[in-house]
Design a protein around this nucleic acid. Sequence first.
DNA 1: AGCATATTGGACTAAGATGGTCCCATATGC
DNA 2: GCATATGGGACCATCTTAGTCCAATATGCT
Lengths: 156, 156
Amino acid sequence: MLRISKLTDYGTMILVYLAAHTGGVCSANDVANGTRIALPTVQKLLKILARGDLVHSLRGAEGGYALSRPPESISAAEIVDVLEGPLSITECSMTDSQCELEHGCPVGDAWQKINRAIRCALDTVTLADLAHPPHEFPLVDLSARRSRTAERRSHD
Amino acid sequence: MLRISKLTDYGTMILVYLAAHTGGVCSANDVANGTRIALPTVQKLLKILARGDLVHSLRGAEGGYALSRPPESISAAEIVDVLEGPLSITECSMTDSQCELEHGCPVGDAWQKINRAIRCALDTVTLADLAHPPHEFPLVDLSARRSRTAERRSHD
DNA sequence: AGCATATTGGACTAAGATGGTCCCATATGC
DNA sequence: GCATATGGGACCATCTTAGTCCAATATGCT
Protein backbone atom coordinates (compact mmCIF):
# COMPACT_ATOMS: atom_id res chain seq x y z
CA MET A 1 0.00 0.00 0.00
CA LEU A 2 0.97 3.55 -0.53
CA ARG A 3 4.06 2.71 -2.40
CA ILE A 4 6.50 5.10 -3.92
CA SER A 5 7.57 4.41 -7.46
CA LYS A 6 10.76 2.60 -8.27
CA LEU A 7 12.03 5.75 -9.92
CA THR A 8 11.69 7.60 -6.66
CA ASP A 9 13.65 4.88 -4.96
CA TYR A 10 16.37 5.13 -7.57
CA GLY A 11 16.31 8.89 -7.32
CA THR A 12 16.88 8.68 -3.62
CA MET A 13 19.81 6.37 -4.13
CA ILE A 14 21.29 8.86 -6.54
CA LEU A 15 20.88 11.68 -4.08
CA VAL A 16 22.48 9.59 -1.39
CA TYR A 17 25.39 8.94 -3.70
CA LEU A 18 25.79 12.63 -4.40
CA ALA A 19 25.56 13.38 -0.71
CA ALA A 20 28.51 11.10 -0.16
CA HIS A 21 30.51 12.89 -2.84
CA THR A 22 30.10 16.53 -2.01
CA GLY A 23 33.04 18.68 -2.96
CA GLY A 24 33.12 17.88 -6.63
CA VAL A 25 30.67 17.19 -9.37
CA CYS A 26 29.79 13.68 -10.47
CA SER A 27 28.92 12.84 -14.04
CA ALA A 28 25.93 10.71 -14.80
CA ASN A 29 28.41 8.00 -15.62
CA ASP A 30 30.01 8.17 -12.20
CA VAL A 31 26.63 7.93 -10.55
CA ALA A 32 25.61 5.00 -12.71
CA ASN A 33 28.77 3.14 -11.80
CA GLY A 34 28.49 4.00 -8.15
CA THR A 35 24.86 3.04 -7.79
CA ARG A 36 24.66 0.24 -10.32
CA ILE A 37 21.60 1.80 -11.86
CA ALA A 38 21.42 1.71 -15.64
CA LEU A 39 22.99 4.79 -17.17
CA PRO A 40 20.00 6.00 -19.21
CA THR A 41 17.85 5.82 -16.14
CA VAL A 42 20.39 7.74 -14.13
CA GLN A 43 20.53 10.40 -16.82
CA LYS A 44 16.80 10.74 -16.82
CA LEU A 45 16.57 10.94 -13.07
CA LEU A 46 19.36 13.48 -12.78
CA LYS A 47 17.61 15.68 -15.29
CA ILE A 48 14.46 15.56 -13.23
CA LEU A 49 16.33 16.22 -10.04
CA ALA A 50 18.09 19.16 -11.66
CA ARG A 51 14.82 20.62 -12.85
CA GLY A 52 13.44 20.15 -9.37
CA ASP A 53 16.39 22.08 -8.00
CA LEU A 54 17.61 19.32 -5.78
CA VAL A 55 20.87 19.06 -7.68
CA HIS A 56 22.57 21.66 -9.80
CA SER A 57 24.35 20.82 -12.97
CA LEU A 58 27.50 21.80 -14.76
CA ARG A 59 27.49 21.31 -18.47
CA GLY A 60 30.32 20.54 -20.80
CA ALA A 61 33.44 18.51 -20.33
CA GLU A 62 34.34 17.97 -16.70
CA GLY A 63 30.75 18.75 -15.98
CA GLY A 64 28.35 16.82 -13.85
CA TYR A 65 25.95 17.11 -10.97
CA ALA A 66 26.16 18.04 -7.34
CA LEU A 67 23.65 18.56 -4.57
CA SER A 68 22.32 22.07 -4.64
CA ARG A 69 22.04 22.17 -0.87
CA PRO A 70 23.51 20.32 2.08
CA PRO A 71 21.78 17.00 2.66
CA GLU A 72 20.40 18.18 5.98
CA SER A 73 18.16 20.68 4.27
CA ILE A 74 16.65 18.34 1.71
CA SER A 75 13.60 16.57 3.04
CA ALA A 76 12.13 13.30 1.92
CA ALA A 77 8.96 15.20 1.12
CA GLU A 78 10.81 17.36 -1.38
CA ILE A 79 12.36 14.32 -2.97
CA VAL A 80 9.01 12.66 -3.40
CA ASP A 81 7.51 15.87 -4.68
CA VAL A 82 10.14 16.31 -7.34
CA LEU A 83 10.15 12.69 -8.44
CA GLU A 84 6.45 11.87 -8.34
CA GLY A 85 4.86 15.23 -8.69
CA PRO A 86 2.75 16.84 -6.02
CA LEU A 87 -0.03 14.34 -6.16
CA SER A 88 -2.27 14.22 -3.18
CA ILE A 89 -3.28 11.04 -1.44
CA THR A 90 -6.68 11.34 -3.05
CA GLU A 91 -7.75 13.40 -6.00
CA CYS A 92 -11.23 13.41 -4.59
CA SER A 93 -12.64 10.88 -7.00
CA MET A 94 -15.74 12.85 -7.72
CA THR A 95 -14.45 16.01 -9.26
CA ASP A 96 -17.85 17.40 -10.09
CA SER A 97 -20.56 18.36 -7.73
CA GLN A 98 -22.03 14.93 -7.05
CA CYS A 99 -19.93 14.90 -3.97
CA GLU A 100 -21.47 17.99 -2.42
CA LEU A 101 -25.00 16.93 -3.24
CA GLU A 102 -24.99 13.89 -1.18
CA HIS A 103 -23.03 14.40 1.98
CA GLY A 104 -20.37 17.03 1.60
CA CYS A 105 -17.74 14.37 1.20
CA PRO A 106 -16.44 14.06 4.73
CA VAL A 107 -14.41 11.14 3.55
CA GLY A 108 -12.23 13.10 1.23
CA ASP A 109 -11.60 15.50 4.03
CA ALA A 110 -10.46 12.73 6.32
CA TRP A 111 -8.08 11.35 3.74
CA GLN A 112 -6.75 14.83 3.36
CA LYS A 113 -5.85 14.91 7.02
CA ILE A 114 -4.16 11.58 6.79
CA ASN A 115 -2.34 12.91 3.79
CA ARG A 116 -1.13 15.85 5.80
CA ALA A 117 0.14 13.56 8.52
CA ILE A 118 2.08 11.59 5.96
CA ARG A 119 3.53 14.74 4.52
CA CYS A 120 4.69 15.72 7.96
CA ALA A 121 6.40 12.40 8.40
CA LEU A 122 8.18 12.86 5.10
CA ASP A 123 9.03 16.42 5.99
CA THR A 124 10.83 15.37 9.10
CA VAL A 125 13.26 13.03 7.45
CA THR A 126 16.14 14.61 5.58
CA LEU A 127 18.45 13.32 2.95
CA ALA A 128 21.16 13.27 5.56
CA ASP A 129 19.06 10.86 7.58
CA LEU A 130 18.59 8.72 4.53
CA ALA A 131 22.26 8.84 3.66
CA HIS A 132 23.96 7.88 6.86
CA PRO A 133 23.38 4.38 8.08
CA PRO A 134 21.46 5.70 11.01
CA HIS A 135 20.50 3.11 13.52
CA GLU A 136 18.81 5.83 15.36
CA PHE A 137 17.46 8.65 13.34
CA PRO A 138 14.96 11.34 14.08
CA LEU A 139 11.90 9.82 12.56
CA VAL A 140 8.66 11.13 13.90
CA ASP A 141 7.42 8.82 16.54
CA LEU A 142 3.74 8.36 16.05
CA SER A 143 3.10 5.44 18.28
CA ALA A 144 4.40 6.62 21.62
CA ARG A 145 3.81 10.29 21.91
CA ARG A 146 4.19 10.45 25.66
CA SER A 147 7.94 10.18 25.61
CA ARG A 148 9.28 12.68 23.19
CA THR A 149 12.58 11.61 21.77
CA ALA A 150 13.79 10.44 25.11
CA GLU A 151 14.64 6.90 24.32
CA ARG A 152 12.44 5.06 22.01
CA ARG A 153 12.61 1.39 22.62
CA SER A 154 12.31 -0.57 19.48
CA HIS A 155 8.76 -1.78 19.39
CA ASP A 156 9.18 -3.15 15.92
CA MET B 1 2.44 11.76 -4.25
CA LEU B 2 1.69 8.67 -2.30
CA ARG B 3 -1.80 8.49 -3.51
CA ILE B 4 -4.33 5.84 -2.71
CA SER B 5 -6.20 4.42 -5.65
CA LYS B 6 -9.59 5.69 -6.66
CA LEU B 7 -11.01 2.29 -5.82
CA THR B 8 -9.83 2.67 -2.25
CA ASP B 9 -11.52 6.02 -2.09
CA TYR B 10 -14.74 4.54 -3.39
CA GLY B 11 -14.42 1.66 -0.99
CA THR B 12 -14.12 4.05 1.90
CA MET B 13 -17.22 5.87 0.77
CA ILE B 14 -19.06 2.60 0.69
CA LEU B 15 -17.94 1.71 4.17
CA VAL B 16 -19.01 5.11 5.39
CA TYR B 17 -22.39 4.55 3.84
CA LEU B 18 -22.73 1.21 5.57
CA ALA B 19 -21.62 2.73 8.83
CA ALA B 20 -24.51 5.14 8.55
CA HIS B 21 -26.95 2.30 7.96
CA THR B 22 -26.17 -0.19 10.68
CA GLY B 23 -29.11 -2.21 11.82
CA GLY B 24 -30.07 -3.71 8.51
CA VAL B 25 -28.36 -4.96 5.44
CA CYS B 26 -27.93 -2.86 2.32
CA SER B 27 -27.96 -4.35 -1.13
CA ALA B 28 -25.33 -3.31 -3.63
CA ASN B 29 -28.08 -1.40 -5.33
CA ASP B 30 -28.87 0.60 -2.23
CA VAL B 31 -25.23 1.47 -1.82
CA ALA B 32 -24.89 2.48 -5.44
CA ASN B 33 -27.87 4.77 -5.16
CA GLY B 34 -26.72 6.20 -1.89
CA THR B 35 -23.16 6.87 -2.94
CA ARG B 36 -23.72 7.62 -6.63
CA ILE B 37 -20.99 5.19 -7.54
CA ALA B 38 -21.68 3.02 -10.57
CA LEU B 39 -23.36 -0.21 -9.62
CA PRO B 40 -20.86 -2.64 -11.12
CA THR B 41 -18.07 -0.89 -9.32
CA VAL B 42 -19.98 -1.03 -6.07
CA GLN B 43 -20.57 -4.74 -6.55
CA LYS B 44 -16.91 -5.35 -7.17
CA LEU B 45 -15.84 -3.33 -4.18
CA LEU B 46 -18.33 -4.95 -1.85
CA LYS B 47 -17.09 -8.36 -2.87
CA ILE B 48 -13.55 -7.33 -2.06
CA LEU B 49 -14.59 -5.83 1.24
CA ALA B 50 -16.49 -8.99 2.10
CA ARG B 51 -13.51 -11.14 1.32
CA GLY B 52 -11.41 -8.86 3.46
CA ASP B 53 -13.86 -9.35 6.31
CA LEU B 54 -14.69 -5.72 6.64
CA VAL B 55 -18.29 -6.35 5.74
CA HIS B 56 -20.28 -9.51 5.98
CA SER B 57 -22.79 -10.53 3.42
CA LEU B 58 -26.19 -12.13 3.28
CA ARG B 59 -27.04 -13.91 0.11
CA GLY B 60 -30.35 -14.44 -1.56
CA ALA B 61 -33.39 -12.26 -1.78
CA GLU B 62 -33.50 -9.61 0.90
CA GLY B 63 -29.79 -10.10 1.17
CA GLY B 64 -27.11 -7.49 1.23
CA TYR B 65 -24.12 -6.25 3.14
CA ALA B 66 -23.43 -4.87 6.56
CA LEU B 67 -20.32 -3.88 8.46
CA SER B 68 -18.85 -6.87 10.20
CA ARG B 69 -17.70 -4.76 13.12
CA PRO B 70 -18.55 -1.41 14.64
CA PRO B 71 -16.93 1.45 12.76
CA GLU B 72 -14.76 2.31 15.74
CA SER B 73 -12.84 -0.91 15.39
CA ILE B 74 -12.09 -0.64 11.70
CA SER B 75 -8.91 1.27 11.02
CA ALA B 76 -7.93 3.14 7.90
CA ALA B 77 -4.92 0.87 7.69
CA GLU B 78 -7.18 -2.16 7.42
CA ILE B 79 -9.22 -0.51 4.73
CA VAL B 80 -6.16 0.29 2.68
CA ASP B 81 -4.79 -3.18 3.24
CA VAL B 82 -7.93 -4.86 2.02
CA LEU B 83 -8.42 -2.60 -0.96
CA GLU B 84 -4.86 -2.18 -2.18
CA GLY B 85 -3.16 -5.23 -0.83
CA PRO B 86 -0.35 -5.10 1.68
CA LEU B 87 2.12 -3.39 -0.58
CA SER B 88 5.00 -1.73 1.14
CA ILE B 89 6.17 1.77 0.39
CA THR B 90 9.14 0.35 -1.46
CA GLU B 91 9.74 -3.11 -2.75
CA CYS B 92 13.44 -2.48 -2.49
CA SER B 93 14.12 -2.01 -6.16
CA MET B 94 17.18 -4.15 -6.20
CA THR B 95 15.94 -7.54 -5.17
CA ASP B 96 19.19 -9.30 -5.80
CA SER B 97 22.44 -8.80 -4.03
CA GLN B 98 23.70 -5.76 -5.89
CA CYS B 99 22.33 -3.74 -3.07
CA GLU B 100 24.45 -5.36 -0.38
CA LEU B 101 27.59 -5.15 -2.46
CA GLU B 102 27.73 -1.48 -2.58
CA HIS B 103 26.49 0.03 0.61
CA GLY B 104 24.06 -2.23 2.40
CA CYS B 105 21.12 -0.23 1.15
CA PRO B 106 20.59 2.18 3.99
CA VAL B 107 18.09 3.92 1.79
CA GLY B 108 15.62 1.10 1.64
CA ASP B 109 15.84 0.84 5.36
CA ALA B 110 15.00 4.48 5.79
CA TRP B 111 12.01 4.23 3.52
CA GLN B 112 10.91 1.30 5.57
CA LYS B 113 10.88 3.43 8.66
CA ILE B 114 8.92 6.11 6.92
CA ASN B 115 6.56 3.42 5.81
CA ARG B 116 6.12 2.31 9.37
CA ALA B 117 5.31 5.83 10.43
CA ILE B 118 2.67 6.08 7.75
CA ARG B 119 1.15 2.81 8.82
CA CYS B 120 0.94 4.15 12.33
CA ALA B 121 -0.90 7.19 11.10
CA LEU B 122 -3.36 5.03 9.23
CA ASP B 123 -3.73 2.75 12.21
CA THR B 124 -4.85 5.59 14.39
CA VAL B 125 -7.78 6.69 12.28
CA THR B 126 -10.91 4.57 12.40
CA LEU B 127 -13.85 4.28 10.08
CA ALA B 128 -15.90 6.10 12.69
CA ASP B 129 -13.52 9.03 12.37
CA LEU B 130 -13.90 8.93 8.63
CA ALA B 131 -17.66 8.68 8.83
CA HIS B 132 -18.60 11.50 11.17
CA PRO B 133 -17.88 14.96 9.94
CA PRO B 134 -15.23 15.34 12.59
CA HIS B 135 -13.76 18.77 12.91
CA GLU B 136 -11.53 17.40 15.55
CA PHE B 137 -10.55 13.82 15.24
CA PRO B 138 -7.77 11.85 16.81
CA LEU B 139 -5.26 12.03 14.06
CA VAL B 140 -1.71 11.68 15.13
CA ASP B 141 -0.17 15.06 15.44
CA LEU B 142 3.13 15.07 13.69
CA SER B 143 3.47 18.73 13.11
CA ALA B 144 3.78 19.74 16.72
CA ARG B 145 7.40 18.76 16.97
CA ARG B 146 8.54 21.90 15.30
CA SER B 147 12.15 21.63 16.32
CA ARG B 148 13.45 20.54 12.98
CA THR B 149 10.83 21.37 10.42
CA ALA B 150 10.15 24.89 11.51
CA GLU B 151 10.90 26.31 8.11
CA ARG B 152 8.50 24.36 6.02
CA ARG B 153 6.20 26.39 3.95
CA SER B 154 2.59 25.41 3.80
CA HIS B 155 2.36 24.09 0.32
CA ASP B 156 -0.82 22.18 0.55
C1' DA C 1 39.12 26.05 -34.53
C1' DG C 2 38.01 21.38 -33.62
C1' DC C 3 37.11 17.53 -30.87
C1' DA C 4 35.74 14.94 -26.86
C1' DT C 5 32.91 15.10 -23.00
C1' DA C 6 28.56 16.25 -20.69
C1' DT C 7 24.12 17.90 -19.83
C1' DT C 8 19.16 19.20 -21.95
C1' DG C 9 14.97 18.28 -23.75
C1' DG C 10 12.18 15.47 -25.74
C1' DA C 11 10.24 11.36 -28.24
C1' DC C 12 9.40 6.73 -28.02
C1' DT C 13 8.09 1.88 -26.71
C1' DA C 14 7.00 -2.11 -23.86
C1' DA C 15 5.09 -3.71 -19.79
C1' DG C 16 2.18 -3.36 -16.04
C1' DA C 17 -1.31 -1.44 -13.05
C1' DT C 18 -5.86 0.61 -12.77
C1' DG C 19 -10.72 1.48 -13.50
C1' DG C 20 -14.65 -0.28 -14.95
C1' DT C 21 -18.04 -3.65 -17.04
C1' DC C 22 -20.16 -8.00 -17.75
C1' DC C 23 -21.42 -12.95 -17.32
C1' DC C 24 -22.71 -17.14 -15.06
C1' DA C 25 -23.13 -19.88 -10.93
C1' DT C 26 -25.13 -20.10 -6.41
C1' DA C 27 -28.01 -18.99 -2.44
C1' DT C 28 -32.32 -17.38 -0.29
C1' DG C 29 -37.18 -15.75 0.43
C1' DC C 30 -41.84 -15.68 -1.14
C1' DG D 1 -40.08 -22.05 -9.24
C1' DC D 2 -39.18 -17.38 -9.79
C1' DA D 3 -37.29 -13.01 -8.53
C1' DT D 4 -33.63 -11.11 -6.04
C1' DA D 5 -29.15 -11.14 -4.23
C1' DT D 6 -24.25 -12.21 -3.67
C1' DG D 7 -19.69 -14.95 -5.35
C1' DG D 8 -16.16 -15.54 -8.38
C1' DG D 9 -14.34 -14.82 -11.85
C1' DA D 10 -13.01 -13.08 -17.01
C1' DC D 11 -12.43 -9.31 -19.76
C1' DC D 12 -10.89 -4.93 -21.98
C1' DA D 13 -9.70 0.03 -22.48
C1' DT D 14 -6.68 3.17 -20.74
C1' DC D 15 -3.46 5.41 -17.97
C1' DT D 16 0.92 5.18 -15.69
C1' DT D 17 5.46 3.50 -15.16
C1' DA D 18 10.08 2.00 -16.45
C1' DG D 19 13.42 2.29 -19.42
C1' DT D 20 15.89 3.58 -23.80
C1' DC D 21 17.47 6.55 -27.29
C1' DC D 22 18.44 10.66 -30.15
C1' DA D 23 19.52 15.37 -31.64
C1' DA D 24 20.87 19.82 -29.71
C1' DT D 25 23.70 22.56 -26.78
C1' DA D 26 27.44 23.85 -23.67
C1' DT D 27 32.19 23.56 -21.97
C1' DG D 28 37.20 22.36 -21.53
C1' DC D 29 41.38 21.08 -23.76
C1' DT D 30 44.69 20.63 -27.39
